[in-house]
Simulated assay, not measured.
Amino acid sequence: MYPCRSPKNAEEFDKYYQLRWQVLRKPWQQAKGSEQDELEGQSFHRMITDSHGEALAVGRLERTGQFTGQIRYMAVSPEAQGKGLGKQVLTALEQLAIRLGIKELVFNAREAALPFYLGLGYSEQGYSHTLFDEIKHLKMTKSLVAQVNDDTELVTQLEQTWHDTIPVSKAMNIQISHYDRAKLITHCDPEFNKNLHNTMFAGSIYTLATLTGWGWVYLQLAQEKLTGDIVLANADIRYHAPIHGIANAEVDFEEVSGDLQTLAEGKKAKMALTARLFCGDKVAATFNGTFYVLPKSK
């Protein structure tokens, strides 16, 4: 089975879009470029390539709200159909959606693809529209359920701590969508955090990054059964691009350093980490922070 991943460079994106056009637009005499729209930079792109790097199957996930999303532009090369590649791409996009906190997928599917989606647990909700005066589309929905693990209760406790003690986190509706001890992913309400340019407010970006880092330290303390007061000692953030869509913040354990065990000796502990803000597949901001954990006075 070939891996399903995001395109890595301009050449791969060219092949990704070329397959979209060949399958979804060319047969209806649509011009090159019609296979793309204004949401490409906010979306999550996945593709399967053969051993020569040629695109075999592609698909896109986009967020339509804090907890909703849709799948678009699913296409499989005619030479590769019948090999389960479409299912592989769709499954990868669904798993990604769950990690991002998306609870429901709602999108329009071509009538010819109806058996494919029904076979993978989607429900038909009736007629949507007809594309190019010829291709009938039906509305499809599917509820997504996040996997419960040993840390689910701890994650819920962290969210409650944020909302009870840091009012802005509740106003922003900061939520944890994924934690597996290797990566922490958070997101927030896109409407509340928009500025006058209809992009994410810089202060909200900084707050989401800071609390995601703070949350990582909180979770490590709980896992090691240690207690202490977490404070941000210093931080810097680089804003790489405006966030027009819905952002998520991530902390990866590979970008964390520090040792909390000094707390057991009654000394402060230090943890440095990087939190990245993503808009779609692209990094929109990078936060580097150092947190101290102070022993609680007895």
Rank of each mutant, 00 (worst) to 15 (best):
S6D: 01
K8E: 14
E12D: 09
Y17D: 13
L19G: 08
R20W: 04
R20P: 04
L24R: 03
L24F: 08
S34I: 06
E38A: 04
R46P: 06
G53V: 02
E62T: 00
F67I: 11
Q70I: 02
V76N: 04
P78R: 09
E79N: 07
E79P: 00
Q81T: 09
G86S: 07
L90F: 07
E94M: 03
L96V: 03
L96S: 08
I98A: 09
L100G: 02
K103W: 00
E104N: 15
E111Q: 15
Y117F: 15
G121P: 10
S123D: 15
E124Y: 13
S128I: 06
H129I: 10
H129R: 13
T130H: 14
D133C: 13
T141C: 14
L144H: 14
Q147T: 01
N149F: 03
Q157L: 14
L158H: 13
L158D: 03
W162Y: 14
I166C: 10
K170V: 02
M172H: 12
N173G: 07
N173L: 11
I176N: 02
D180Y: 05
R181F: 08
H187F: 08
D189E: 05
N198G: 13
W214R: 01
G215H: 09
G215I: 12
W216K: 08
V217G: 05
V217Y: 13
L219Q: 11
L221F: 12
E224Q: 15
D229K: 14
A241V: 12
A241T: 11
P242S: 10
A249C: 14
V251L: 10
F253W: 13
E254C: 02
T262L: 09
K267V: 08
K268Q: 07
T274H: 05
A275H: 03
R276I: 09
D281L: 09
D281K: 10
A284H: 05
A284G: 06
Y292N: 10
K296C: 11
K298A: 15
